[in-house]
Amino acid sequence: MRFASMEYVKKMQEVLNSDEQHRRAAKGETDSYLLVLDPEPDKGVAERHIVGYSMVDGEVTEAWTGQRKTTFVLSAPYGVWVSILEGRLGPIAAMTTRRLKIRGNLLKLLSGSDSTLRMVELLRTIPTEFEGEYASVKLGQEAG
């Protein structure tokens, strides 16, 4: 499915909620997140994509596309997100080095790093189609 599509975020919600390890790691997290994938016209990504989800005590209660009010906003060019999903860039390093721009309380976000790491592992299992130059990247392997 197409990265950051409605179908994708619904799948993300399902995958996160059905994983015991993620539920445990995210326990106590009640926040909402907006993930902004900024365009890279020179790499064939013409448009910005925005997805979001809200979590209540570790359970994803809602996932959507488009912008709305959230506790955190994480933004980066499309390719940075692809690198994270590919495993070429660690999500925590991406945050602390500002490759991923964070708006909201960074320390609070970093304190939930176990669930972030597990989330990335889980997203890797979703067969995902990327745009432009990233079309050749293939995901969809089993989570460890």
């Binding site: 925005i50 912008q67 009010k69 959230t70 933004s75 721009k101 708006r103």
Partner: peptide, 17 residues
């Protein structure tokens, strides 16, 4: 209106991030 629009994102967009 921060109830409707994400303020962080709006300000980022208005200030070249």
């Amino acid at each position: 209106n921060p109830e409707v629009d994400n303020l962080d994102l709006a300000v980022a967009d208005l200030t070249e991030d």
